[in-house]
Design a protein around this nucleic acid. Sequence first.
RNA 1: AGCCCUGUAGUGUAGUGGUUAACAUAAGAGACUCUGGAUCUCUAGACACCAGUUCGAAUCUGGUCGGGGCUGCCA
Length: 565
Amino acid sequence: MNSEDTVKKDFIRDIIDEDLRTNKYDGRVHTRFPPEPNGYLHIGHAKSICLNFGIAEEYGGLCNLRFDDTNPTKEEEEYTRSIIEDVCWLGFDWEDRLFYASDYFDQMYKYAIQLVKDGKAYVDDLSAEKINEYRGTLTQTGRNSPYRDRSVEESLNLLEQMKAGEFADGEKVLRAKIDMAHPNLNMRDPVIYRTLHATHHRTGDKWCIYPMYDWAHGLEDSVEGITHSICTLEFENHRPLYDWFLDALGVYHPQQIEFARLNLTYTIMSKRMLLELVEGRYVNGWDDPRLPTISGMRRRGYSSAAIRNFCKRIGVAKVNSMVDLEFLEHCVREDLNKTAPRFMGVLRPLRVVIENYPEDKVEEMEAINNPEDPGAGTRKVPFSRVIYIEQEDFMEEPPKKFYRLAPGREVRLRYAYFVTCKEAVKDDGRIVELRCTIDPATRGGYAPDGRKVKSTIHWVSVEHAIDAEVRLYDRLFTVNDPAGQKNADFKEFLNPNSLEVLKSCKVEPALGNLKPFDRFQFERLGYFCVDPDITKENLVINKTVGLRDTWAKIRKQQQMNKLDS
RNA sequence: AGCCCUGUAGUGUAGUGGUUAACAUAAGAGACUCUGGAUCUCUAGACACCAGUUCGAAUCUGGUCGGGGCUGCCA
């Protein structure tokens, strides 16, 4: 229950504990979250954000937000904006420490000159293809570039000309002079600067050379005095380089620690693939509620508390793993159960006439707003002679274990009366209306004679109902690992039924007071929230996640058994 | 193939030489209930394998097997 407050130890926190014990960084803990502004943040980033900001919080340290904007061809202002919004919404605060890698471009250039002067870097004239060729392969050592041994003066000169824009894109690069025979490919004279005449969203046309990740990242960490530079596993093989640059420069040296990125079933976590879905209009923008983006989940109705709790509970380790989407949904339900006010809404309406209830009578039934939170109080729900109930709450020929309404059967209308079905009115074989009676003695939902009823169903008064459009979402993909399917495009596994729009839903009048992003529960159905597409005339509601549905499970089992026999 | 990382219930994590190997979730059974929700109880379920060290190994050593990553002027 207090899963939210317990600080769970993991291998990263163990390292920090040890560093604190040995006073490695004078007792400081300083992390950073370094997104590249080339897409929207997703739940995988949330894991990293919670890790970095969480650790800083726990240890009384600091966490910076830093945009790793070293590649102007892919980065945009719009992404920066969204990232700031998302980190904020998740509930983290970088105070005055919002940085950009581009803030350090001058410093990085000076460091590069230092490296050249020390004979540890050189300008290479080889083409990209040639550099590739010279690099060797996994099993074969590389060969030195013919330009590797040119003089420091010449490299210095060339570097200056590169910076001045005197070379075309791709014509020259600055490379570190390490070891072309190194078993780690990353150490075979990696590129430090590439020539690139592109307009940067912050520095404009000031630069026509841009630093490579390996060169830039450690320097950014170093300049900011980061103690623990936490990144994902794919940078493991880059750590020797991270260390080499910092050592070669003789500057402050944070330590890089790698952890396994998050994978979630039935979705994708790759920015490239997300971009493809957005640009190809397979979804409706970065904040489509079916996407695992922070903005998508926010629009879907997920709370930041639920996401934070999820990130805490999945832990952090070095093995690649796949977390069940159900676990995320569990965390969402757990939070919403405690916080979401309840309402009644009918998604697929079935008209019910209560024959023994007066035509013009309206009663205000008292309903509890949230049984999990007594402080949430109560509200009045209007009841009248004609109401809607859910189509699936009635069956003419109920199978075993179906407890809801059926001909001759009595159930409870939540917070109202016991109701008995007298007749199902059909039109062309389709049930269009139910004729029922209530027991006036059961007003409020209790029988004075103590008799029990097998189930309680929700309802909405026809006269008072508000029309609503409800958008139902299912998993975006039909397979649990769409990105990992061999020889297939992930888009082939898109679930064609991931979005279902219900136009004629009927909801209780209190819903009219809600604002976009307000979260609530439709009793017996699930958690929902108001979509920002809402207008004065059109109430638009998103389904966040359904309630646990025992009946659906029974039904499925019954159908399986039927197939077996 | 070379280098690096990594193997604990279905899933995600804990366990750091002595524990009935823990927790969460999922699964199954039951209790309770004006949400077939929530809550509660119970059940089943794991140390990849083989040697070695040791009185004693999930934990240390060696090997085998499995999984992941690396050959962008992306990050």
